[in-house]
C-alpha cells in the first residue's frame, strides 16, 4: 500500500496538524518509505497469533472510590495560554 498527497492531507486533518502543499509532498515521500519498511511484516503469517497490546501479565489494579483531590483550579489553570478566573478560553467552537 502506498499513500498519496490527498491521503497525507486527510490524515493531517485527522491529527489536527496543518500541512502546506510543499510539506505534503515531502511527507508523502517520507511516509511511504516508512510504510514500505514496516510492510516487511507481511512476510509473516500471523493468522493464528494473538495480538498483545501490553507486555505485563499483572491484573489491572483498582482504586477505592474515595475523593482525594480537593480544589486544584489554580494548578490546572496555571499554564493555560488563555483563561479567566474560572475557565479555559478557546476560540469559538462551531457546532
Amino acid at each position: 500500500m502506498s499513500i498519496n498527497k490527498e491521503t497525507v492531507k486527510k490524515i493531517s486533518k485527522l491529527a489536527r496538524i496543518s500541512v502546506s502543499d510543499q510539506q505534503a509532498s515531502k511527507l508523502e515521500k517520507n511516509l511511504n518509505s516508512i510504510l514500505s519498511f514496516v510492510e516487511q511484516l507481511n512476510e509473516l503469517n500471523t493468522e493464528k497469533i494473538n495480538p498483545i497490546s501490553t507486555i505485563s501479565n499483572q491484573k489491572l489494579i483498582m482504586r477505592d472510590d474515595v475523593v482525594k483531590v480537593s480544589n486544584q483550579k489554580e494548578d490546572i489553570l496555571k499554564n493555560a495560554p488563555e483563561k479567566n478566573s474560572s475557565y479555559y478560553i478557546v476560540p469559538k467552537v462551531v457546532e
Partner: peptide
C-alpha cells in the same frame, strides 16, 4: 498538546484552526 490547557498556542479563526496551527 492542543494549545488549550498548557503549552504553546497559535491563533486561529476558530478552534479547529487554532489546533491545526498550534500543532503544526
Amino acid at each position: 498538546y492542543d494549545g488549550v490547557r498548557y503549552g504553546h498556542r497559535e491563533s486561529g479563526r476558530d478552534l479547529i484552526e487554532m489546533y491545526e496551527n498550534t500543532r503544526s
